[in-house]
Design a protein around this nucleic acid. Structure first.
Lengths: 238, 238
DNA sequence: CAATAAATTAGACAATCGGGTAATGGATTA
DNA sequence: TAATCCATTACCCGATTGTCTAATTTATTG
């Protein structure tokens, strides 16, 4: 019975998600931990540790070079800490998902990490195989938070008055989705670039950039790029 | 390979928490969805759906009676909605972990659910086997959030000043604080108002508004109002 | 009291923005 | 095949933006 289940699960995995391996970069100062992480992850054939760094500066270089799917980031690094590194990472328009890894469970550290770009928070005593699962989850965009700190994270969320919460209203109804290209433009827009700069980045004319921005504004139902940027940030579109 | 992993994981579990199977209660108004959920979960021998309810009132009774490990709670219930039910659930000192289940991806709904007692947020198009994984995860206390809404949730977390995190850096050193008036202007700026509109709101001339904006940009070390707005939102200044 | 900072106003200027309209080629779909 | 959507480019035009210099008034602080 159990065998059947696992079999089914693997078969399903193979068809859907496991078409390519997940590339991972490890940023961790302790050599021993680094080796342990690498071994634990590389034991999974769908996960591939492509590089390792022992400090944030080196890590950022490797991240920019390899553009991995997932980054395992230790928070307690010498020099630039993991949180600063994550912020820098986001600034360089990096799409990699970040797993914050630490042995601490201080509330501020958890919140700081998650609000600075981490998609997951793991304590270092995590089961190695579980970590592999988290890597897979996070690579698809899931937010995963260790049991030890999950509650304090949830408590930190702003309480929303649930009056006026209407189950009837369908949200994404009249919403026109942005095209891929428009999303690219939106990212640059959010980073504060002018149309000219966006055009330069995407190697198109200013007219094209303007056309995309115009279209974005209409689809997002906003009047100017500031509103678009704020809405994008608040709704987590970028 | 996979078998070994499952074996190890279960062995570990057995010592700690999983001496018995995970009991689950489903609260969902659509009969068809209810059947689907039950089948998907009961196909796993370590998960046992002990009861089902089609509305919140009935659900709460069953929860009090069975005290399940995990509750699958639909948010769009008739009468008392899922969020109210979760609040009531916490009030009755219930230790069950709650998975919020919905097809909506509205930001307020997500935050409301997670801040009202849910440990996980799943969209209904989740893979059935994945849902079983989430049930296992959540039963150990993990916080799990669907990729579709993960980013917006993380963005809702309060931003913590991450400088000063390390013993090295002295925290808000070279930072010039905004004046009260400038904060007012910033708020309007973030809401996407033009200088003219800001001036009208504050009953000052456009020149004044512009002067404030100019000063804000310099103090925040950004080049334009878009960057200022994004930074303000990201750092939770507004 | 004097000095400093903040808020206010003004004029001017180059650059950018947002909204039109319109055309072309490529890809996908009906 | 025709229709549709997307990306691209172009031009025009009025409105807006960001920076500059410069001046006045009002608090606040030493």
């Amino acid at each position: 019975m159990h065998l059947v289940k696992v079999g089914l699960y693997m078969a399903q995995k193979t068809e859907e998600t496991k078409t390519k391996t997940i590339s991972v970069i490890i940023v961790e100062d302790f050599k021993l931990t680094r080796v342990g992480l690498r071994c634990a992850l590389n034991a999974n054939e769908d996960i591939n540790v492509v590089a390792e760094a022992e400090d944030a500066v080196e890590g950022l270089k490797l991240i920019e070079k390899h553009k991995p799917d997932v980054i395992l980031m230790d928070l307690g690094l010498p020099g630039m800490n993991g949180i600063e590194a994550m912020v820098k990472c986001k600034e360089m328009m990096c799409d990699s998902k970040i797993i914050a890894l630490t042995s601490h469970d201080r509330c501020e550290e958890v919140i700081a990490a998650l609000s600075s770009g981490a998609s997951a928070y793991c304590l270092k005593d995590i089961d190695p195989q579980k970590l592999a699962d988290v890597v897979r989850d996070v690579s698809t965009g899931v937010c995963w938070i260790d049991p030890m700190v999950a509650q304090m994270t949830l408590n930190a969320l702003p309480k929303i008055d649930n009056i006026g919460f209407l189950p009837n209203k369908s949200s994404s109804e009249g919403r026109v989705p942005l095209t891929e290209r428009e999303f690219e433009v939106l990212k640059h827009l959010v980073s504060g670039k002018s149309n000219t700069e966006i055009a330069k980045e995407l190697i198109v004319s200013v007219h094209t950039a303007k056309a995309h921005v115009c279209s974005i504004l209409q689809k997002m139902c906003v009047n100017d790029r500031v509103q678009a940027a704020v809405k994008a940030v608040k709704e987590g579109m970028v």
